[in-house]
Design a protein around this nucleic acid. Structure first.
Lengths: 337, 337
DNA sequence: CACCATCATCGAACCGGTTCGACAACGGGA
DNA sequence: TCCCGTTGTCGAACCGGTTCGATGATGGTG
């Protein structure tokens, strides 16, 4: 079951078997055939640990995800699925590491134990201790999202500020004067979660530029919170006629709240924001929104990581994606009062 | 950075460092302290590949998931998250392997390359070639779901037949006479996906017992299909007053279809089925349903696997869970005609 | 004081691959 | 015929840990 056994049965040395398998040195055709026959017969496959030890690489990537307690959103789920798929295309396996803001055991084990050749990190904060940790550990990594000072880092992100800015301009063009941004949870904002912070900035900037009255509210990532959040907006600021949201988990609740309030979208109220296309289509009516190209980002992240692993001294690369807004049917002109 | 370097700096042999780390043989207190100081100073952590090679175990589990193309449902997502979390509690890492019905590269690599100590398989079929593969490979594994003839296998499952039977009885008790089961997609049923097949059996059995007119329809796992599916039911069988469903992905569409048809739940129409509690609560009104205890199953699967790895000769164990139906507000007496 | 257990440590073998340098066999050119 | 380059294969070292048997130091006992 090991390479020595194959060598013995094929009547050659272990190194010859190794070369026949890897092709790194030529092997006589007849010998190669004999070796392959034995291998096929025994269903042999090299031991991954031994190979990793000898080669100095594990052919495995780590994907750092938020801990199980924090539910994954659809976009995050798309990241995970696509990262795994893209890695498989490179014949790489993916090790999952659930990790909170601080370095826990799983993260440490992976980072310092040379368990993987590289790391992809999702859900990083503007000032993330784990990024610092990876930097000092000389382990190639790519982040989905970027820290505040990403100098020298490799990353892939969506320009949330630009997207939200564009949403606000779109609403302003439709004559809306009072708008609200429904952000992610207060904890995420407080922790310095990039998209939440950058969205706020983009929102306020565009609103000021267009002279809109604009407010930002935080909302937990769940339907019930979306419902409560909207009812609060209606109660406190009845003049609001449109919302921008980056909180897709809250959408079902938002939808129910609109229905309960007897508001018809987009006749009485407009909604837009940054929402996965699949969800946007499911909404009723379909949402005018900027889709996060999760698959593209994940694929890009894997490709960048593979590149960085191949050449650790290469110049840092990054990609800031700026998807267009898909005009569907959830936004309309400000209703006459 | 390796154990030899630590040994050199601490002025001891490599084996002493190893023993100090593992505690498998006593080491003098003074020596241990010196070694620990050096380790702390250098931030040393044993190379995982070398350790795996020497110990003959990788401290890693594989989790076989459906391929990325087939979107994960919420229940499946809960499985993944909880498996990772439960494995972390045992200091085990989790390798993700997306695998279709047939054995693809990733699956083969993991199974025959001794990359992992054990495997957890989700989404298995009644007659699954991968289960056969694992059996002949002497790799410990636990399935979430069970094959048709699970003799000697280790598994965890929910008794879908019993749950659906119970749903039917519940509807019969409410005087419904014409019911429909909205099943998972036709492809899944055709492939022999356990929950889909067993639900059908339980549904028909209970319906016959109570003398109901009962039909089963397949429905793709997406909202749009749920909508189309329901409209078809209304068109073809207007006498139907209640549905049972195990297709949670189709629920939003179902909800929209009900709304579009002007039906109020549960006054005009009843819905029940097997649906994750989180989703059931999000529905409007909250769904009377049997919750799949995904977290419990995942935790159980990991615990069983750990047990089986520790003692590969142990007698096979399994758990067939049978959660109760949570009475919420989506079922009511058959409307008077 | 001699003897024997116990304790702490060491050296060597091993896990299962990869890779490097060496070398034999062979064929072609001078 | 001699020399040299090429081709195919082998043996040994190495990757970085774990583990076993051996050994020297120590201390208690008869």
């Amino acid at each position: 079951m090991n390479i020595g056994e194959i060598a013995r049965r094929a009547g050659v040395s272990r190194s010859t078997v190794s070369y026949a398998l890897s092709g790194k040195r030529p092997v006589a055709a007849a010998t190669a055939r004999r070796i392959n026959e034995v291998i096929a017969e025994l269903g042999y496959r090299p031991n991954a640990s031994a190979r990793a030890l000898a080669e100095g690489r594990t052919r495995t990537l780590a994907l750092v995800i938020p801990p199980a307690s924090r539910r994954l959103t659809n976009v995050q789920l798309d990241f995970v699925a696509t990262v795994v798929e893209a890695a498989a295309a490179h014949d790489l396996d993916v090790l999952l590491s659930p990790s909170g803001g601080d370095h826990d055991r799983s993260f440490e084990r992976i980072v310092t134990g040379r368990r993987v050749d590289g790391v992809i990190m999702m859900e990083i904060l503007l000032d993330d201790p784990r990024v610092t940790r990876l930097r000092q550990n000389e382990l190639p990594f790519v982040t989905i999202g970027h820290v505040e000072h990403p100098g020298g880092s490799w990353w892939v992100d969506v320009d949330y500020a630009a997207l939200v800015r564009r949403c606000v301009h779109h609403l302003a063009d439709l004559a809306h004067r009072h708008v609200v941004l429904i952000n992610r949870s207060a904890e995420l904002v407080a922790a310095g979660y990039g998209p939440a912070v950058r969205s706020t900035a983009g929102f306020q900037e565009a609103a000021e530029q267009r002279g809109l009255s604009a407010h930002v509210v935080c909302c937990a990532d769940e339907p019930a919170a979306g419902l409560a959040c909207f009812e609060q907006i209606r109660a406190r600021r009845p003049e609001v006629t449109a919302v921008v949201t980056i909180n897709e988990a809250a959408l079902p609740g938002l939808q129910r709240a609109l229905h309960r309030a007897g508001l018809v979208v987009p006749r009485d109220f407009s909604i837009t924001g940054v929402i996965a296309d699949r969800l946007a289509e499911d909404f009723h009516p379909p949402l005018t929104a900027a889709d996060v190209p999760a698959e593209e980002m994940a694929r890009l992240a894997v490709d960048l990581l593979v590149e960085r692993i191949a050449d650790p001294a290469a110049d840092p690369r990054h990609a800031l994606l700026d998807p267009v807004i898909s005009l569907r049917s959830s936004t309309g002109a400000r209703p006459a009062r």
